[in-house]
Nucleic acid binder design. Sequence first.
DNA 1: TATGAATGAGATTTCATTCAT
DNA 2: AATGAATGAAATCTCATTCAT
Lengths: 193, 193, 193, 193
Amino acid sequence: MSKRDEILAAAQALFAEYGYAGTTMRMIAERAGVAFGLVSHYFGNKEKLFLVAGHEMIDAMLAVIRQDMQKAENGLQAVDIFVASYLSFTLANRATFPTLIRCSPFSDDNPHLDRQKIGVKFEELIREIEANLRRGMDDGTIARVPVRDCALMIYASMVGAVRTVFLSPFGEPGLFDETRRFILRSLRTTPEV
Amino acid sequence: MSKRDEILAAAQALFAEYGYAGTTMRMIAERAGVAFGLVSHYFGNKEKLFLVAGHEMIDAMLAVIRQDMQKAENGLQAVDIFVASYLSFTLANRATFPTLIRCSPFSDDNPHLDRQKIGVKFEELIREIEANLRRGMDDGTIARVPVRDCALMIYASMVGAVRTVFLSPFGEPGLFDETRRFILRSLRTTPEV
Amino acid sequence: MSKRDEILAAAQALFAEYGYAGTTMRMIAERAGVAFGLVSHYFGNKEKLFLVAGHEMIDAMLAVIRQDMQKAENGLQAVDIFVASYLSFTLANRATFPTLIRCSPFSDDNPHLDRQKIGVKFEELIREIEANLRRGMDDGTIARVPVRDCALMIYASMVGAVRTVFLSPFGEPGLFDETRRFILRSLRTTPEV
Amino acid sequence: MSKRDEILAAAQALFAEYGYAGTTMRMIAERAGVAFGLVSHYFGNKEKLFLVAGHEMIDAMLAVIRQDMQKAENGLQAVDIFVASYLSFTLANRATFPTLIRCSPFSDDNPHLDRQKIGVKFEELIREIEANLRRGMDDGTIARVPVRDCALMIYASMVGAVRTVFLSPFGEPGLFDETRRFILRSLRTTPEV
DNA sequence: TATGAATGAGATTTCATTCAT
DNA sequence: AATGAATGAAATCTCATTCAT
């Protein structure tokens, strides 16, 4: 692993644990085992590093989700796979995923961070859901719903579930099962079996 | 308005806008029009002030919601009123509500803040939803669902919706209509009319 | 006990325990059980209070020592009584005596404190020793020594002993026995019996 | 002289003159001619800097004293050389020595400073005196005295003398001659010539 | 006599960033 | 590429003191 990657990995772990303000450049350099000057050298400044850290995570996540979705046979299933894949990715990256939470446009940390670029990536996710919804309404597996708003709500309930599990004292990973069912119940045309 | 209350109001507005780390004691004192020593005098330190600011908001919100819920005629309606009341409270307090978001146990801001006490208040909210779900399953207006997890999911989707509207570039207040329907669709026994 | 005296007693105990800088006006008011405005009301400011606290202690000590010294039958005995009386006073006032240490001209705390007035009181103590030394050289119980410097050395070794017992981790009250003998050995004309 | 050493020297001079509480980090940086961030950079915080400042002085002093003591021909002479060397070191370092006074375990400044480590160094000094006393009692130059307590009293009278000269308005350096004689008179078996 | 709200100077400490090596 | 000395802005918090009641 190159020193650049060591720094990035350290940053993801630390931003995840301590948040943006609670993580210092020195902490990152120390955890990565490099001189602290090197962090600026590679990433310019703290904010850029933070965004790169989030950016590389969402790229990885998007790739996995898109891969998983290919198996879908109809719109409802596609949504379900999307949700399951998203949630499973978060669990597989427990230690670093909160960095993505913290730099996402849905974050309340660091409100004046420029999330323009990361926002574009998240928009891609939402577009995927919209496409799946349309597909489901066409093939009859999904009821009539307002596409944009409903896609946002699906994403919103995942965001809420992830926060409940990762940040609040209320949730445990088992909640994610109900997350899937909760969303499916809200979409399907045919009753649950 | 007493100076103590001026400080509290200023803190709520500023934490809402700039987040915990982005808000300084000096900003709060300035906005409140008092010497900054007075902020410590009344609230001890920044963290305590932050929690008091959030605490007083959630108390106000709980009171409104409980009031509104009295009108409910069955379990499903009770859930719906809960959701509508919650969302409408957020809109009525646009400028300060994000302070509650930021100090809630679902927040990613300030990860080492002790949210014990505020957590207890949020647990009260979730308990209300649970009670409504049980009522609905008893009176036949709500389908069979796992009570605890489903209550968490209802809360989670509200959290997600509020964040979408208040923090992300994706949402507008109109989304809240779909939030209500999205949740109702997921719960009800009888089809939407 | 009047509130004024409550404040003074609280001040003596706290300055003794926490030193000048480590003691706040608020701590004093709290321990005395009065509003903190009252401290300034009675004593003007912290520095004056500190000096009054020390002043009243040394007055009490001087009275006791002078009383005790009346029993002396010769110069050597007078010095011995002086030393014994001084050391016994410190032990009888363990909890508050360090305040006197801290505002004495031999203190290293608060170097720019004006110790003019307290200095005059300490000069009185040293004059007493000088008188005793002269008396002893006249009556033959004390060897020829330079009066001023020797008086200062007697006082200095008491200061050192008190610090050893009260401040350092090295001493215990039993050391004060050796303090008396150490001084007597240095003064007397006839060998120890 | 490296910037680290400039800071240390400035700290020693300023702590000596203004005491712990009266010396600010800014004063130290200014006197050393460096940015004040550098002080924390090298020494962590004020307390650590204070202890390092004292520590380096006592190490220097111990080295000089041990060197001087090698000339001693008997126990009494060894004690005398110890005392003379100690007092002469203080005079040679007038401007900075009070920093050692202020961080010593005999100090009344800053009562909650952790003096553990500096205490160990001072214990070394006292052990030296004890060894000299035993040597003198063996070779007949020193009278029978309780070793530990007498060693403490010798150290205590030096502490008292140094304070008299450096801190009080009563003493002048000439007092140190009487300090030596005062101690010798208290120890020797044969009368002064 | 007694209270405590209110002030603001000033202290320590943290930390992103720059830059010479 | 890599280091870490050096900078200084900015933050929080403390606390003596004043003053209206």
